[in-house]
Design a protein around this nucleic acid. Structure first.
Lengths: 197, 197
DNA sequence: GTATAAAACTAACGCTTGTTAGTTAAATAA
DNA sequence: TTATTTAACTAACAAGCGTTAGTTTTATAC
């Protein structure tokens, strides 16, 4: 048995992600998604439970992926500064792999709801908090072990994460760039700084 | 004659900005805004032309403010690196002054439309392009004059602007911080970098 | 105090929304 | 071939949307 074709459901999630990316969750109607799938809106409901479920099915796996990634790295035997670099690289990779899905992470999560099946909003925010906590832990270790200057951790981490959150937007318009170049350049800027020494 | 009270219209724009910030333009209904104003939705139309006009009245003045700011600075007799620092400081100040309005800049501009009165979408994008162009110009000058390393300008500028775009989000949750501390710390991180030398 | 203007109200409009019910067509398994 | 499942369809729903019309109340000017 060969690997199953991309399921109809997956197609829907992909099309929806593109539309959500372009217009936002609220401004995208179920009929818009159906049109993109070349079917009637009612037919979508053979594959999905609700519009809300689509959003959850896009966002939550990504949020889990982020958290899993940072935990594996921070538990690895790398030095703290190597860990920090790997964490940044991991985010860049996730973004490039799934631009439209990732594009919803910074803003559209506000439309997650508590449904019968799961409290998606809480689930998302818990994962995000966990991620941020882990990130700060590694960052502090980098300072303590003398790799980084003694800066305000909250401000510095917010600044780095901002760049990574906006990467999807920049990368959408600059896909020609080599991902590896982007990776090294970005890590260099974020950690090493821009000033001539 | 004493200075006129904050007009009812301005109140509406402020309330709307808060709601747009919280839920997004599309998910915010005219009735939501009216409720916040403690009036009926129809009464809003004594003060505004349409929901779309509200969005335009919030976003476009801010966009103009940004562009005016960067142009004044880049035409000043400061050195290139001083200009860069001032541009960053200016953005930080605009953000702090009007958090809810600024919060709409990164994403909600997609809901701007061409109306009878003005092509708000084009107007916004033109301003944004102008801003980015000006920013890159100053940045390149900083490199040319030896203040900054020879980095990829597109990537570095995107990275700095990302941090500034996300500032509203971070600052909403950390208002206790002294704006001036934030300013110096952020400029230092963004330009000077984090690594110990 | 009366006339004018500003800003609220009630009621309703046409349209779009997410979703359900019931039915038919296509694909798969026996 | 027949039975079963999957996935499409048409039609419709109740609720909410932005907005308009017309009216009444409140504030301002003479």
């Amino acid at each position: 048995m060969v690997k199953k074709d991309k399921s109809r459901r997956t197609e829907i999630l992909e099309k929806a992600a593109i539309l959500f990316h372009k217009k936002g969750y609220s401004a995208t109607s179920v009929r818009n998604i159906a049109q993109e799938m070349k079917m009637e809106s009612a037919s979508l409901y053979n594959h999905i439970k609700s519009k809300q479920e689509i959003l959850q099915a896009i966002l939550l796996p990504i949020a889990h992926r982020y958290t899993k990634g940072i935990q594996e790295i921070s538990n690895s035997p790398l030095t703290s500064i190597q860990q920090l670099e790997r964490i940044i690289a991991d985010q860049i990779r996730i973004t490039i792999e799934n631009i439209d899905g990732v594009s919803l992470i910074p803003n559209e999560w506000v439309h997650l709801e508590k449904t019968k099946e799961r409290d998606a909003l809480k689930e998302f925010l818990d994962l995000r908090n966990l991620y941020e906590k882990e990130f700060k832990k590694v960052f502090k270790k980098c300072i303590k072990e003398g790799y980084l200057r003694k800066v305000n951790v909250d401000i510095a981490v917010f600044s780095i994460l901002s760049t990574l959150r906006w990467l999807y937007s920049w990368y959408s318009k600059n896909q020609k760039i080599n991902p590896l170049v982007l990776e090294t350049e970005l890590i260099n800027n974020l950690i090493g700084g821009l000033k001539k020494t």
